[in-house]
Computed example of a mutant assay.
Amino acid sequence: NGGGDVIDLRTPATVPENPRRGDVDLIKSQGGTILPDDDPASYSGNDKLFKDKNGELRAEWTVGNKDALQESDKKAMGKSLVDGDYPKNSKGESYGSLLLADYVGYMPDLQYIAAYPPEDRPEGYIREAELHKAGTALRGLSKEECPHWYSIPLYNSEGNVIGEYKVGCEGHYDTEGLTPEEAREVIMRGPTW
């Protein structure tokens, strides 16, 4: 590990003695649910967890904690958050960078996508549910059946469709008829398209 600290993300067998906790009131104000303190399943390693308003597990200590942010995210935070929360559009939908979700305490309804490259992927917002649904539809398709690229709607901050966002499949692994060791080797080499 290069001499660095190893972080244990497993569920501990017992409740940690001195877990990292967070601002419970802030978490609740963002729609989060506090998990029981006496349940080892409420921890990941030494971090106390909570369920965000979307049902995702997150570490308590990161919510509202600027020290938990990367330097690049700290710079973006000032321009994209309002009082530590994502801004809301006229429909009440939150929008902003997914990179700030641990700090805010939940993923925004509309997730910011930067233009890269501009001609292929214009700047705007996507909805995680649409991305997940489209990606799930491709899983299990053979390399020959898969279109390899698909599009989902691209939105502005008001939630109005402004175009399409192209997304690539996750690639394919041909492991049929292989032993577990051979399949592991194929997966380690990476997917094919």
Rank of each mutant, 00 (worst) to 15 (best):
G2N: 13
D5N: 12
I7R: 12
D8P: 11
A13C: 01
T14I: 03
T14Q: 14
T14K: 12
I27Y: 00
K28M: 07
S29H: 09
Q30D: 13
G32A: 06
L35T: 02
P36G: 10
D37A: 13
A41F: 04
S42G: 11
S44C: 03
K53Q: 11
N54W: 09
E56P: 03
E56W: 12
E56F: 12
W61C: 07
V63A: 05
N65C: 05
N65Q: 08
K66E: 15
K66H: 12
D67F: 00
E71C: 01
S72H: 02
S72V: 14
D73G: 06
K75H: 01
K79D: 15
K79R: 10
V82W: 04
D83V: 00
G84D: 09
D85V: 09
Y86R: 09
K88G: 07
K91P: 08
G92N: 05
E93L: 08
S97A: 11
L100M: 07
D102R: 08
V104W: 01
Y106T: 13
M107E: 14
M107V: 14
P108S: 04
P108D: 04
P108T: 06
Y112S: 11
I113W: 00
I113H: 08
A115W: 01
Y116Q: 15
P118G: 03
G124Y: 00
Y125M: 01
I126K: 09
I126R: 10
R127M: 10
R127Y: 02
R127Q: 14
A129I: 11
L131Y: 04
L131Q: 14
H132A: 12
K133E: 15
K133N: 14
K133C: 04
A134I: 00
T136L: 09
G140V: 02
G140P: 06
E144V: 03
P147F: 03
W149F: 12
Y150E: 15
S151M: 05
S151T: 13
L154Q: 07
N156G: 05
N156R: 04
N156E: 03
S157M: 10
G159I: 01
N160S: 14
V161E: 13
I162A: 07
I162L: 06
I162Y: 12
G163S: 06
V167L: 06
C169Q: 02
E170I: 04
Y173T: 03
D174T: 12
D174A: 08
T175Y: 06
E176P: 09
G177V: 00
L178Y: 01
A183I: 04
E185K: 08
V186L: 04
I187C: 05
I187D: 09
I187R: 04
I187E: 12
R189I: 03
G190F: 02
P191I: 06
W193S: 15
W193N: 15
